[in-house]
Each structure stands twice: as structure tokens, then as C-alpha cells.
Write a protein that binds this DNA or RNA. Structure first.
Length: 509
RNA sequence: GGCCCGUUCGUCUAGUGGUUAGGACGCUGGCCUCUCAAGCCGGCAACACGGGUUCAAAUCCCGUACGGGUCACCA
């Protein structure tokens, strides 16, 4: 049997380092067994998935140096590799489950569901929730469908006994069946949830080993149930420990840069980033720190994965990247990489329109545009103090924090959108645009004035902007947990108020 | 809160019954040196706790504590 593994990202945002981490382990495992590694796009969430995100994820994985044998862009014998293009398969699978009595239609509306959930919680129940439609006869169920009642298809779970699972790294895991919920398999929009699509695809794509994040352990019983219902062999499960923030929580962009694009932008070598990810939860048998993908592949041993969740430590990544830069590249390669990074026609041509009006000679460019080549800016509190129209440190922190939150919601990232957003924030906060923008110039360029802000932000990119703004806040005083809560509430209220006043102004004439 | 997973220096880790518990990052002292890095040499620093099992436990078992995940028509 050929070993086949996969990574199955959901195209709902920036390419995450966690995706590269999981991909790396899957890749190494498959390749070292002479197997195949597949990339599948899990875009069953119609409201959040986007093709831009999919493209970014593919590009980012390629950038770090991971390649796949089958995938949406390279094809393969088990396609299509995008779940949105496999809808019929899931419909059919759901029907099979329904017919076999392994699933049932649930006609609960979302309001009813919410109410039920609240009740369930209130009662302090220690088992999972059971739908009132669980035991509806097929005839009754069909009748409701004929009436046109919307429904979802849920998994029928045993209410007693114990589910026994095997995890390659953790051994036997036992879960009482009454803890397993009647997971929605097919949503009312006809799309499958992760659980159904994942099992169906892994089977049809011949996946033999599933290396995935630890967060999936608790849903493994459902998956096992599905495999059994279909009469399929279940792949071997390997739950990898989750990458963590310094505070040990699951790595999140609120607390740590998580986008691969950020690391690319900061000037890390893809080889170094991948090398670093390979050091997360794993080590070379001889404990050497620096190794290439091929070297990792040659020595990889899935059973030597350690289980404590590793903290993603940028300081060590910096050191490792430095080792690559100093020792692994020739000078010529080094020059090429620098050019590739930022000193290229493409990047310069974005910057030049902004600095050309301001420069009288090329040597003016360094002070004018040097910040385009920086990581986070080297700031002291004084740099952010005494800005005209800004009351105090807390106001600067509040401006940056609120705008950061608002900016995080943006999908598009271009000068117009940024401009509209910041103008809106000025209104929300009751500040003149000029005043609101003042801290931005300092945070982003290190100077009180710089190139036009909105274009500048667009060029710097969302990730770097986020990092610099957050750094500026931290330089004054990091946001405490308490402030975070208070400010978030005030932020939401101010926005609601602003929206209301807009509505009133535009109201019926 | 229920359930599940985890726990070796601050961080990444080696270690699978007998080790002075090793390495790496960071921090720190020194050497080198036109400065700063880099490099080299040294230092600080860990088996969460409590019970067992055993001649012997970081390693096996049980509890406790702590951390994490999960309880969505998101993945």
C-alpha cells in the first residue's frame, strides 16, 4: 500500500505558519515512505472562503519549499481537489448515511437551536445535546421535507458505551459516546461540514495517514463513526501538538504574527522558516539545528515527535535565519535573495512614485524610503509623544488599537479601502483625520511625516503594518487584559453609535 | 463547567529504569578584534507536586496541580 498524506487548508484568510508546519510533517512522512503528498482545499464554508486566499496559501506553501503530487493547481487522479467542486459526492454520501440510519434530518431552526443550547447549558448537562428529531420516523421526516421545511443532516451517535480510538503518538484514547455530539454533516445550504467532507475525501483520495493538529482529537470519534458507517478503513491518526503563543495558548495572529507572508516580508529565508518549523516538536537524531528539507526528510521519524505544545519563539527563528544567511548561501546567492526580497524592480516601482516628488538626488532615497526596508521600527516613547492634537499616551494607544482592530476586519488591502476605513475611524472616535493619522506616521515610518500614508500602508502590506502598529502601542505600554476588554466594549459601542447616526442622517427624507 | 490531550532549564529539545540530566536559543562573563556583529571559550538555569512499583525512577502506575484543546449549519 502506498502511503498517501495530505494537508487540507481552508482558504479563509492569510496563509498560516501552522499550515506549513502540518504540511511539512505530512510531506516528510509520505516522501520518506515513497508515498504521495496531496494538497486539498477545504472551501465548504461559502461565506468565508475566497479564491484569493486559496491562491495565497498555494503560493506561500510553494515559497517555503513544499511541493505536492496532487492538488487543485497540478491536478491528479483523484480530483477535483477543491471541495466546492465535489458537492455531489457529499450529497450522495449523506444520502447513504440517511438511508442506512446512520444520520437523520434535523429541522431545528437556528433560534430553536440557540434556545436549546442555552437550556442545555443552564441545566448543567454533562453529556452532549440530543436533537428532538433524532428518532423521527423516515415517513415523518419525509413529510416535513415535503412541506418544504429546511433541515440539516446530523450524525446519529450512540448514547452509551465508549469510543476507543488509536492515535499513533498517544496510543489508545477512550471517549464516552454520550460526549460525542450529533454533528451536522450536511448544512442547510447543501454543503457538507468539515467532518463529512473530510472523511469522504480522505477515503476517495486514498489517504492512509492523517497528520493533523491536536485540536481535532475531540472530533475523531465522529470521524471513526463515519468510517464505520460507510464501511471504510480509517486512516491512521497522528495528532500533532499545536504551535503556541508565548503565553502557551494556540498560536493566533492577535498575539503573534502567524502569516507566512509576514515572515517573507520581514526577510526570512523560506528554508530557514521551514527549518524552524521542523524544529517544532521534532529534532534531528543528532540534534543539529540547521537542516534542509531533504535532510529532514532523510531522518524524519514520526514516532519521535514530542507532544508538549511548542512555543513559536521568534528569537530562535532569528538566530536560525542568521545561520542560513551566513553559512548556507554563497555571496552571489545572497545578493540574489536580497534582490528577490525587496531590491527588485517590482517593489521599487511601487515606492518610486511616492518618493520621486520629494527627492533631489538618489542619496535622498535612503532617509525618505528606508523604512520600506525595515521590520518593526525602532521607536522610543518620546517619538510617539507630543503629537499635535493628541492628548496623551493613552489616546495614542487607543487610536492605534482601535484602528488595528478595524483594519483587521478588512479583506481588501488597497489605498482606497484603507483611506475609507481610517476616515470612518476618525468619525467614530470624534477626531480630525489629521490627528488620528499622526501616530500612524510615527509608528510606520519612525518619523512624524513620511510618504502618503494610505499608499504607504498598502505597499507595506497588512502584516507589516499590523506588526508596526502593535509595536508602537507596546513601546508606550502593552495593552493589559483589562484594557483589552474595556476598550473592546467601548470600541463596539462607538461604532454602533456611529452607524446609528449615519442611519439617522440617511433616514427617510 | 463536562470531556479529551499534555507537563525536562525562560524558550526549542535529547533522554525510553542505573547519566555529574546533554545540546540549542536567549541572558551573562571572557577571548578575538579599528567599532559592532560573527566566531571561539566559560557561567547561570530544568525533570510540576504527592504517593506507589523497584535494589534503583526524569523514565512505569495512580492521584493532585497547572497548561492546552474542544463542546458551531468554521475548519
Amino acid at each position: 500500500m502506498t502511503v498517501r498524506t495530505r494537508v487540507a487548508p481552508s482558504p479563509t484568510g492569510d496563509p498560516h505558519v501552522g499550515t506549513a508546519y502540518v504540511a511539512l510533517f505530512n510531506y516528510c512522512f509520505a516522501k520518506q515512505h515513497g508515498g504521495e503528498f496531496i494538497l486539498r482545499i477545504e472551501d465548504t464554508d461559502q461565506t468565508r472562503s475566497s479564491s484569493e486566499s486559496e491562491q495565497m496559501i498555494l503560493d506561500a506553501l510553494r515559497w517555503v519549499g513544499i511541493t505536492w503530487d496532487e492538488g487543485p493547481d497540478v491536478g491528479g487522479a483523484h480530483g477535483p481537489y477543491r471541495q466546492s467542486e465535489r458537492a455531489a459526492l457529499y450529497q450522495e454520501a449523506a444520502q447513504t448515511l440517511l438511508d442506512g440510519g446512520h444520520a437523520f434530518r434535523c429541522f431545528l431552526t437556528s433560534d430553536e437551536l440557540t434556545a436549546l443550547r442555552a437550556e442545555h447549558q443552564q441545566a448543567g448537562a454533562t453529556h452532549s445535546m440530543v436533537s428532538p428529531y433524532t428518532d423521527l420516523s423516515r415517513a415523518e421526516s419525509d413529510a416535513l421535507v415535503a412541506e418544504g421545511r429546511p433541515f440539516v443532516i446530523r450524525l446519529r451517535t450512540p448514547r452509551e458505551g465508549t469510543c476507543v480510538l488509536q492515535d499513533r503518538l498517544r496510543g489508545t484514547i477512550e471517549v464516552a459516546w454520550d460526549q460525542v455530539d450529533q454533528q451536522v454533516l450536511l448544512k442547510s445550504d447543501g454543503f457538507p461540514t468539515y467532518h463529512l467532507a473530510n472523511v469522504v475525501d480522505d477515503h476517495h483520495m486514498g489517504i492512509t495517514h492523517v497528520l493533523r493538529g491536536e485540536e481535532w482529537i475531540s472530533s475523531a470519534p465522529k470521524h471513526q463513526l463515519l468510517y464505520a458507517a460507510f464501511g471504510w478503513d480509517m486512516p491512521q491518526l497522528v495528532h500533532l501538538p499545536l504551535l503556541r503563543n508565548p503565553d502557551k495558548s494556540k498560536l493566533s495572529k492577535r498575539k503573534n504574527p502567524t502569516s507566512i507572508l509576514y515572515y517573507e516580508r520581514m526577510g526570512y529565508l523560506p528554508e530557514a522558516l521551514l527549518n524552524y518549523l521542523g524544529r517544532m516538536a521534532w529534532s534531528m537524531p543528532d540534534e543539529r539545528e540547521q537542516f534542509s528539507l531533504d535532510e529532514m526528510l532523510a531522518h524524519f521519524d514520526v514516532d519521535r515527535i514530542s507532544l508538549g505544545g511548542p512555543v513559536f519563539d521568534v528569537a530562535k527563528l532569528d538566530w536560525l535565519n542568521g545561520v542560513w544567511l551566513r553559512e548556507a548561501l554563497t555571496e552571489a546567492e545572497y545578493a540574489d535573495r536580497v534582490a528577490q526580497w525587496a531590491l527588485n524592480r517590482d517593489y521599487l516601482s511601487q515606492i518610486i512614485p511616492l518618493v520621486r516628488p520629494r527627492a533631489n538626488k538618489f542619496s535622498d532615497l535612503a532617509p525618505l524610503a528606508g523604512f520600506f526596508l525595515h521590520g518593526v521600527m525602532d521607536l522610543s516613547p518620546a517619538d510617539l509623544q507630543g503629537l499635535k492634537g493628541v492628548a496623551d499616551d493613552d489616546e495614542v494607544r487607543r487610536i492605534l488599537t482601535w484602528c488595528l482592530w478595524r483594519l483587521d476586519e478588512l479583506r481588501a488591502w488597497d489605498p482606497d479601502v484603507i483611506q475609507a476605513t481610517l476616515r470612518e475611524m476618525a468619525e467614530v472616535m470624534g477626531l480630525k483625520l489629521r490627528v488620528l493619522l499622526a501616530p500612524f506616521f510615527v509608528a510606520l515610518s519612525g518619523q512624524k511625516s513620511a510618504t502618503p500614508l494610505f499608499q504607504t500602508m498598502a505597499i507595506l502590506g497588512k502584516d507589516l503594518v499590523r506588526a508596526r502598529l502593535r509595536h508602537a502601542v507596546d513601546v508606550l505600554k502593552p495593552l493589559s487584559g483589562k484594557e483589552q476588554g474595556r476598550w473592546r466594549k467601548a470600541f463596539d459601542e462607538a461604532r454602533a453609535e456611529h452607524a446609528a447616526s449615519l442611519a439617522a442622517a440617511a433616514g427617510p427624507a
